[in-house]
Simulated assay, not measured.
Amino acid sequence: MSPRWETNTGIRRGRHVNYSLHAHLVFLTRDRRDVFDDAMLERCEKIMGDVCAGFDAELREFNGEADHVHLLVHYPPKVALSKLINSLKGVSSRYLRAEYTSLINRNEADSALWSRSYFAGSCGDASPTVIRQYIEDQKPPA
């Protein structure tokens, strides 16, 4: 079978599009406070996975430390990444602040869980060098 017809599980298909869009996201806690423990990180992963599912996206990887979390999200081209990030941070903040009030004091003036800033990096299966070489190797029409 031709390689172009083989199934690639990294490529998702829509009605008129084939895509493989991944973003590496990093969210910091407000003022880099050490807030998370293992139980909170597990709950945060569940919440963020549910938010991603609502956007028809997939949370591929999740991990974190006491003051930040890392996510690898596979998302469709119809999703504006900034909207997904806004929802991830907003929903997780609401749930975690409600469920872990002893660790995140909701009565403080700056009781926000997340910093206003974040990191978002695009990532894919091939390096820019490989893609550049592939484009250069295309044959012009006869």
Score class of each variant (00 low, 15 high):
Met1His: 12
Pro3Asp: 03
Glu6Ile: 01
Glu6Phe: 03
Asn8Leu: 06
Thr9Glu: 10
Gly10His: 11
Ile11Met: 10
Arg12Phe: 05
Arg13Ser: 10
Gly14Glu: 13
Arg15Thr: 10
His16Ile: 03
His16Phe: 05
Val17Trp: 02
Leu21Glu: 09
Ala23Met: 09
Ala23Gln: 05
Ala23Leu: 05
Ala23Tyr: 10
His24Thr: 01
His24Met: 05
Val26Gln: 06
Val26Ile: 13
Leu28Asp: 06
Leu28Trp: 05
Thr29Gly: 06
Thr29Ala: 09
Thr29Val: 07
Asp31Asn: 07
Asp31Thr: 08
Arg33Ile: 05
Asp34Tyr: 09
Phe36Asp: 00
Ala39Lys: 15
Ala39Met: 14
Glu42Tyr: 08
Arg43Glu: 15
Cys44Gln: 09
Cys44Leu: 12
Glu45Pro: 02
Lys46Tyr: 13
Ile47Pro: 05
Gly49Cys: 03
Gly49Phe: 06
Asp50Glu: 15
Cys52Trp: 01
Ala53Arg: 14
Ala53Thr: 13
Asp56Thr: 14
Ala57Gln: 07
Leu59Ala: 00
Arg60Thr: 08
Glu61Leu: 11
Asn63Ala: 13
Asn63Val: 02
Gly64Asn: 10
Ala66Asp: 09
Asp67Ala: 05
His68Leu: 02
Val73Gly: 01
His74Cys: 04
Pro76Phe: 04
Pro77Phe: 02
Ser82Trp: 05
Lys83Cys: 15
Lys83Asn: 15
Ser87Phe: 03
Leu88Glu: 05
Lys89Phe: 01
Gly90Leu: 02
Ser93His: 06
Leu96Met: 10
Leu96Glu: 04
Ala98Leu: 06
Ala98Asp: 08
Ala98Gly: 09
Glu99Asp: 12
Glu99Thr: 09
Tyr100Asp: 13
Tyr100Gly: 12
Thr101Asp: 10
Leu103Thr: 11
Ile104Gln: 09
Asn105Leu: 13
Arg106Met: 04
Arg106Cys: 05
Asn107Leu: 14
Ala109Asp: 09
Leu113Cys: 14
Trp114Ser: 07
Ser115Met: 04
Arg116Trp: 06
Ser117Ala: 13
Ser117Lys: 10
Tyr118Asn: 09
Phe119Tyr: 08
Phe119Trp: 05
Ala120Cys: 11
Ala120Pro: 03
Ala120Ile: 02
Gly121Glu: 11
Ser122Val: 10
Gly124Met: 07
Ala126Phe: 04
Pro128Lys: 00
Ile131Val: 12
Ile131Cys: 04
Arg132Cys: 00
Gln133Arg: 06
Gln133Val: 03
Tyr134Ala: 00
Ile135Leu: 08
Glu136Arg: 07
Glu136Pro: 01
Glu136Gln: 07
Asp137Val: 00
Lys139Glu: 11
Pro140His: 12
Pro140Gly: 12
